[in-house]
């Protein structure tokens, strides 16, 4: 019984992660310029990967596998934004101008 509940829960998380990854990809295609696309990448990095990892942890149960997945999650919270920041910084240094909304709010 408990196993079934955990299994269903973990599949919900995995599918949720997959949906967010898909949304991130759609965003990367729809957004107008480089900098806005980075926001779509952020979605994949945080919710997409995060939910997939949580789903896998539920599959792993109380074992070293779960601990390793937790470590992965922890490290991704450091490397993900650093990589995005590095991309943005590199684009700034090569003088890529961001598209800015000029309309009055």
């Amino acid at each position: 019984m408990m196993d079934t509940v955990l299994d269903v829960l973990s599949w919900i998380f995995l599918l949720g992660g997959a949906i967010f990854l898909l949304v991130g990809a759609i965003g990367a295609l729809r957004f107008p310029d480089f900098y806005t696309r980075l926001h779509a990448v952020s979605v994949c990095d945080t919710m997409g990967a995060g939910l997939v990892l949580v789903g896998l942890m539920l599959q792993g149960g109380l074992s070293l596998v779960t601990v390793k997945l937790l470590l992965m999650f922890y490290f991704m919270m450091f490397t993900g934004p650093t990589a995005v920041h590095a991309l943005a910084e590199a684009a700034m240094q090569s003088k890529l101008k961001p598209v800015v909304d000029e309309r009055e709010p």
């Binding site: 490290f75 450091f78 490397t79 650093t82 920041h85 590095a86 910084e89 240094q93």
Partner: peptide, 20 residues
Amino acid sequence: GPGIRNLIVLRVIAKLFFPL
């Protein structure tokens, strides 16, 4: 690396991850 000297985010994270 071009300009990397000034990028504190990269430097601090690299410092954190090098031993790991």
